[in-house]
């Protein structure tokens, strides 16, 4: 069907929303509560647009296209209303961007900038909820929550867990566990990943650096065999945060508790940092040359005395294909045995 958006004629697909059609045509409509992988919500109203002939604005994220509609996405009226909506949100939002971990990666902040929201014309009550950080992984600052319900939707729709929902009504509505208890769930952290503001943040990333200070490297999670795409956020040779990659991936934006939160072992003080040789039952630090020479000497002695097949190698399902290939090549071509295996069986 044919629709006109900002004077552009677009062939839209039946059932597609105005937002989707506009996006395909390269027209950017701002959103806060919309997420392409979640059900359409229509709560934040930032994406509202004008359809000619209708006396009310509609949320472009929920309104399906209709044949021959004429849509305006960026008139003075709409921009003014969007600004009012942003002012309303900010009238109930702590003004602490200076210390917020989300700064620089915050959709609300970006929109406030784009729409030039400065002072707050709507002085009034602000929600004062204590921050919940008693769970092991996530800091939940409800005073920053904009009720976009991305977290509740991702938890229910994508994860099938439904640990959280919205309780109370109106101005005091709040995302909560049953009876507003401390968060206790699968801790996949997907709620954190979709939160557009600083309401949900990773506990271990707190204060470690903000988005513009970090390098981002796309890689693959090192836990189970699913092979989820992850993005490592690095500051000063330290991985400070893990997020699901935004690129196409098998996990499609999802991770589990391990992929999301179990990465600080990388910086563990327990890491082996130097080669060690056991002398009189105790490990002694050695140089690489010492360690390699000693190993080679011992392996050669044993090979000579007992034959190649008296040596075995356990390779690793945790290592890369390249590591494994070289390992078995060394065992076979170097040592001369097929005694090579890994823990595929456990």
């Amino acid at each position: 069907m044919k629709v006109t958006i900002d004077n552009k004629e677009i062939i839209a697909n039946n059932g597609e929303t105005i937002l989707e059609a506009a996006k395909r045509a390269g027209i950017n409509i701002p959103t806060l509560c919309h997420h392409p992988k979640l059900s359409n919500y229509g709560g934040c109203r930032v994406c509202m647009v004008e359809i000619k002939g209708m006396n009310r604005f509609v949320a472009s994220c929920t309104t399906p296209v209709a044949d021959n509609i004429v849509v305006e996405t960026n008139t003075t009226n709409i921009r003014q209303s969007r600004k009012t909506v942003l002012e309303l949100i900010l009238s109930d939002h702590p003004n602490d961007c200076m210390t917020c971990d989300k700064t620089g990666d915050c959709t609300l902040q970006d929109l406030a900038y784009e729409y030039g929201v400065k002072e707050n014309p709507y002085i009034g009550a602000m929600r004062q909820y204590p921050t919940e950080d008693k769970n092991p992984y996530i800091i939940r600052d409800f005073s920053k929550c904009i009720l976009c319900a991305k977290c509740t939707r991702v938890c229910n729709e994508i994860r099938g867990v439904g640990a959280i929902d919205i309780m109370k009504r109106g101005f005091y509505a709040k995302v909560a566990m049953p009876f507003d208890e401390v968060l206790d769930c699968e801790f996949c952290g997907n709620c954190v990943d979709v939160c557009p503001v600083g309401s949900l943040t990773e506990k271990i990333a707190k204060g470690k650096g903000r988005t513009w200070e970090t390098r981002k490297v796309d890689t693959i999670c090192a836990y189970c065999g699913v092979g989820c795409g992850i993005t490592l956020h690095i500051k000063d040779n330290t991985v400070i945060k893990v997020t699901p990659t935004e690129k196409e991936s098998v996990n499609n934006g999802s991770l589990c508790v391990k992929g999301k939160f179990a990465y600080d072992f990388i910086n563990s003080a327990d890491r082996l940092k130097k080669p060690l040789i056991k002398k009189d039952g105790k490990f002694v630090e050695a140089t690489w040359d010492e360690a390699i020479d000693y190993t080679v000497k011992r392996l050669k002695e044993i090979k000579e005395k007992h034959g190649s097949d008296s040596i075995g190698g356990l390779s690793s399902a945790r290592c890369t294909n390249e590591d494994n290939y070289l390992f078995q090549k060394f065992m076979r071509a170097g040592i001369g045995t097929n005694n090579v295996d890994h823990c595929a069986r456990y």
Binding site: C44, L88, G124, L147, R169
Partner: peptide, 21 residues
């Protein structure tokens, strides 16, 4: 109406509250 707003959308959740205030 402020009391009875469900809290889903911003204009109603915060807007009615501000009008009331």
């Amino acid at each position: 109406t402020t009391d009875e707003s469900c809290g889903k959308c911003v204009p109603c959740r915060i807007g009615t509250k501000r009008l009331l205030e």
